[in-house]
Every structure is written in C-alpha cells, then in structure tokens.
Write a protein that binds this DNA or RNA. Sequence first.
DNA 1: TCCATTTTCAAACCTTCGTTCGAATTGCGA
DNA 2: TCGCAATTCGAACGAAGGTTTGAAAATGGA
Lengths: 206, 206
Amino acid sequence: MTRPSEITRERIMKAAVRLFAERGYEATSVRAIVAKARVNQAAINYHFAGKDGLYRDVLRAAFRALTEHQLVHAAETKAMPREQALGEFVRHQLRPLIARDELSRHIRIFNWESVRPTQIFHQLLSEEAAPFMGLAVDLVRRFLPDADRRTLAVAAVWLIGQCSVFVRNREQLTGPPVALALDESAVERLAQLLSRWAIAGLTPAP
Amino acid sequence: MTRPSEITRERIMKAAVRLFAERGYEATSVRAIVAKARVNQAAINYHFAGKDGLYRDVLRAAFRALTEHQLVHAAETKAMPREQALGEFVRHQLRPLIARDELSRHIRIFNWESVRPTQIFHQLLSEEAAPFMGLAVDLVRRFLPDADRRTLAVAAVWLIGQCSVFVRNREQLTGPPVALALDESAVERLAQLLSRWAIAGLTPAP
DNA sequence: TCCATTTTCAAACCTTCGTTCGAATTGCGA
DNA sequence: TCGCAATTCGAACGAAGGTTTGAAAATGGA
C-alpha cells in the first residue's frame, strides 16, 4: 500500500460525499468532483473504476457509519420510554438541518435515494442487509404492538417521510413564503412539534 | 389560427405531461417527448421555444387545472366537519397511486417540484400566485386555530409531506420488502390510516 | 389558382457527460 | 542508484443532451 495514492482516494471520497449529499447522484458530475478534490480527471476511473464505483464506495461508507452510529445509540434508545425514543429518532433525522458534519451528509444522501433510487443503492441494500428501516420499524412497533407487518412498514415510512420533507426542502423552507429560521432552537422546536404529532398519531385512541 | 399546428401542439403537450409526471423535468429528454408525440425533433423549439418553454406551459396548465379543481371542491370542503375535510384532502393527495388521469399527473409533477424545484417553477409560483399551499394551510388552521403563521406552515408541509412520500415511492413500496398491494381498497385503507394519524397529531391533547 | 406565410422535416451543430488512452512522472524495493 | 510498477496527467473519444439551420411541404386568403 502506497501512501500518496491513499491521499488522492481520500480527497476524492471527501469531495464526493459533499457533492452527492448536496445535489444527489445524477446531478453531480465527475468533473465537479475532481475539481473540488483538486485531482486529475482520470483519477476517479483509476481509483474507483468509474462514477458508479465511487458512488458505491460512498454508499458503503455511509451505511457503515450510520449503522455504527445506530448501534451505539440502540442500547440507550431501548432503555428510554417509547415517547422519548421517538423524540430522539426525530431529532436524529432532522440533524442535517443544522449540523454540517459527515453524518448529516450521509443522511442527505439517503434522502436523495428515497427520492430517486439508484440501481447501485438497490444492489447494496440487499448485500449489506443493513437495518435501514429496521430502527424505524422497531420504534413504531412499540406504539403499535399488535399491528401487522404491512401497517408497521407504512408507519415507518410515514415517520421517516415526515422528517425528510424538511431536510430535503431546507433551502425552500428558509425562503419566503414559509421563512423558517433554521437555527438550533428552531430545529429543536420543530423536532418537538413533529414528535408530539407523531406520538399522538401513533398512540391508539382511547 | 391554423388548425393542424394546434394538433401538433396538443400532441406534444399530452406526451410532455405524461413524461414529466413519470420521470420529472431533468430526466425527461426532448427526444423522448417527440418520440412519444410522434412529431419532429424541432417541433418543440418551434412551438414552445425550447424545453423550458414547454415545461412552463405544462406547469401553467397544471396550475390552472388544479386551482380550478380546488375551487370546485372548496365550497363543499368548507361545509364538512374538519376531520372529514382532512380525509378528503389526504384521499386527493393519494390519488396518483391509483388513478392514471390528468389530475394525477399534475399532482405528480408538483411532487417532483417539491423534490427538486425548478427555476421555471419558482418563477411561475410568484406570477401565478396560486393558492398552492393555501388549501393545506386553511385545513390545518381548523385544527390549530390559535397557532401562529410559522406553525401553520410547518403543519401544512408536514401534512403534504406525509402523503407525497407514498406517491413518489410508489414503485419502491410495491416491491419487497414492503410489498404493498396498491389496489383501490388498499389505497383507501392507507388514506384512512394517514387521516387518522394526522387528525390525532393535529388535535391538541386534552 | 397563385403566392406569401406557416409549419414540418432531416441533418447538423454545439455543449456536457463519463470514460479511455498513452505518455510522463513518481514511489519504492532491490 | 537502478528499474519496474504504481500513479498522475492532459488530451481525446463517443454518446447523449438541447438547439439551430435551411430547405421542403402544407396551408389558406386573395
């Protein structure tokens, strides 16, 4: 293993994660990536065997990081009362609204995938067999213990969907006519609002 | 006004609405439209001054049809109890899941816009000044009469977002692992589920 | 019917995209 | 230090995109 080539790989990966998170797969050109990474045009094909290969590696990294992050929080989440656990989940989903870290970018990439799924993502989803929906399904099951598999799936999609609208449309929501000020406290209020509504929705009527 | 040219215009519009609804603006090529419409390559540029112009006309038509449709239903909706009105709203939003008519295609086009807004859409939104969010805002106001403008906007986005997830991801939801069977009765059940959850979420805790 | 205007058509143009190529350069064990 | 492999580089390729062009065809009023 030579060192300098690893540096190039790393520069490409870093730039790719940023751009894929910002614009999605199709709208990101390899020329934009190599420009941001300050590497040669052919570097992506040499190191990743093409744009597809690069995106596959980015997705793999995102999967790993996200599942790892979930495993860390899984134990403490399970110990919480379900309402608090849901609040944490919503807060986690809304994270890209304020934080500009790697985790947020990974969430944004998956958000793009939920809009226009890539063939690459689909393949990876089966082979990685990551608990992608698992966490959300487990969560709603605590509210709907007697629901069948389909209802649980619908509820999980519903829950994730509520959050991802805001993440995807961040730019639109901050402008008129909505004009949300997305600072930390506003996002916290938003998370509480969404949590309250979701809890009320999932809690069976008395 | 000559007749035959109107026929060409109409063929292009019809094909364009179908393709824009199915794949969105960017993923639809001019060549795909002219192939479906069985007209010459240059026809779009002659009649609509380019792809942008065609899309602008399609959006205008969609705006007109949708606002007209809303105006028709506005009166009876206002007469309903708010729970029933919300149910109707959700059912209307889920319409593209089963129906394959013009109205459903227009809703799908706006769904694409909510994912990746076009410059064209943005311009049109201001000049048409259509009550695009208005209906949803009015609806949630009946549940949250004392809420401020921001909360109402968030609630409206939240409500629309819950429905659009399912519309956008129709293809994914019908396949494994979710495997929803999206026939008419299933969509009706889905609409009831979403309505119940949304009503519970919007109804202030006692 | 004639002719000016409108509309259609096939072909090309120009740009952007992902990828490939071959030479030049660099890195590193022998 | 030498020599081979790994890596970088600039340039070009071919495909696909939207648009333009100029001639042919069709249209419809005088």
